[in-house]
Design a protein around this nucleic acid. Structure first.
Lengths: 224, 224
DNA sequence: AATTTAATGTACTAGATAGTTAAATACGTC
DNA sequence: GACGTATTTAACTATCTAGTACATTAAATT
């Protein structure tokens, strides 16, 4: 009879007073998982490691996200959402087309540079042949905006007579992405093979200018 | 007495007549390992799977390459060597600078496109922060040639008065690499988000032209 | 021919890792 | 305030995986 109480006490330990906080727990898991997947890749990341760094336990990860791939998918979605939200900060519509385009390129360049975790996730996703990106309708709907932004600037530039006609916003967007993405994605290999000059603070400033110059020279009718 | 013979026979199986072929075995292992690492990444690749696809056994992989990382390092080195050998095929020194540069860009664009396994290895290596690239002195010595090739063309163009001065061969090489690399590395994510148009056969032809145009417009004094 | 060395095959193991089982605790609702 | 559901904990397991021990055969050397 009297033993029951003591048994319960013995195993209770620090479980005495915990508060429920589903949303907090979920977002805490996602934040840590983003770091781990981004650092180590899908197969490289360890569920035990993620769990340990979390304020909760491994069981909760499976409770909320089913399995490792489910967690990865949610991390990917969340990363895209966050980055796209960040892009909405840019406001440039009433500038001259050349200025607007320059601003767009330099903003994108900086934005990628500030979000290396996101870049790494996209790299990882490409390693996996876009398998998980393909499964997410959410993400696919977030990206029309990027093309539309270029389209507006380009159309204005053409009708102003400063941009050459015959280009497409898709290809201009591809060019901007290529320069901004590569700058982050291949920073390690490039600096190991060719030196660190381009990736110092001043090197990056110059490279950003080079990027916008490159795009402008590609799009403009005459060189300014 | 008489049992000894039969015992030996029973376990001998297909091991009767095998020939030694160290170099063949080594290169067979490397070729399969390249495919597996390139497809699945360092932590994603499975030693058992590599061994199974090999004409030899797992034991031999460890015999020749010590451990998984040792194998990966050799695969990386071999891939760089092979790709750099492929680049030596290009011969263009006595063309006009604009033509030479255009040829160089389009050659690089195609060369990357033909070697997706190599591109994937470089992506994977960047995910690993260039950890293994850093360890290989072999590779670091292979890359001066790429810059030198650009330098020759650029110097000629400047002294001919067709290229603008003040640029560096390093930055021009960075630009060429960015366009050629991104085209392969981000093909999956880009086509999933923005459609497959750029990656059809005709789309790629146009994109290659866009790449060389981009570089030329960046480098040339006046637009042709 | 005997002996040594290099190359290969087979079977195994220790540890890592994704995922589970079973039970306890908080919270909303009647 | 009793009851059912959502949330959380801790300990456990089956499997996967890198790496090894040990035996064996081909070639080189003497």
């Amino acid at each position: 009879m009297t033993n029951d109480d003591s048994n319960v006490m013995e195993t209770s330990g620090n479980r005495a007073g915990w508060k429920q906080d589903p949303e907090g727990v979920r977002s805490n898991i996602l934040a840590i998982a983003l770091e781990e997947f981004s650092r180590n890749g899908l197969s490289g990341a360890r569920m035990d490691e993620i769990a340990a760094r979390t304020r909760t336990s491994k069981r909760m990860i499976y409770y909320y996200f089913q399995d490792k791939e489910g967690l990865y998918r949610r991390v990917l979605e969340e990363a895209y959402r966050k980055v796209r939200r960040g892009e909405e900060a840019l406001e440039l519509d009433h500038s001259a087309p050349q200025d607007a385009l320059r601003q767009l390129v330099e903003f994108t360049f900086d934005h990628h540079s500030r979000n290396p975790d996101f870049i790494r996730l996209v790299m990882i996703e490409n390693i996996h042949h876009g398998e998980y990106l393909r499964q997410s309708e959410v993400i696919r709907n977030l990206n029309a905006a990027a093309i539309a932004r270029v389209q507006i600037i380009y159309d204005k530039g053409v009708s102003d007579g400063v941009f050459r006609p015959g280009l497409t916003s898709l290809r201009i967007h591809w060019l901007i992405s290529a320069l901004s993405f590569f700058n982050v994605s291949n920073q390690k290999s490039f600096s190991l093979l060719f030196g660190e000059d381009l990736f110092s603070e001043s090197g990056q400033t110059t490279l950003r200018t080079q990027a916008s110059e490159t795009v402008l020279r590609y799009v403009c009718k005459d060189l300014s």
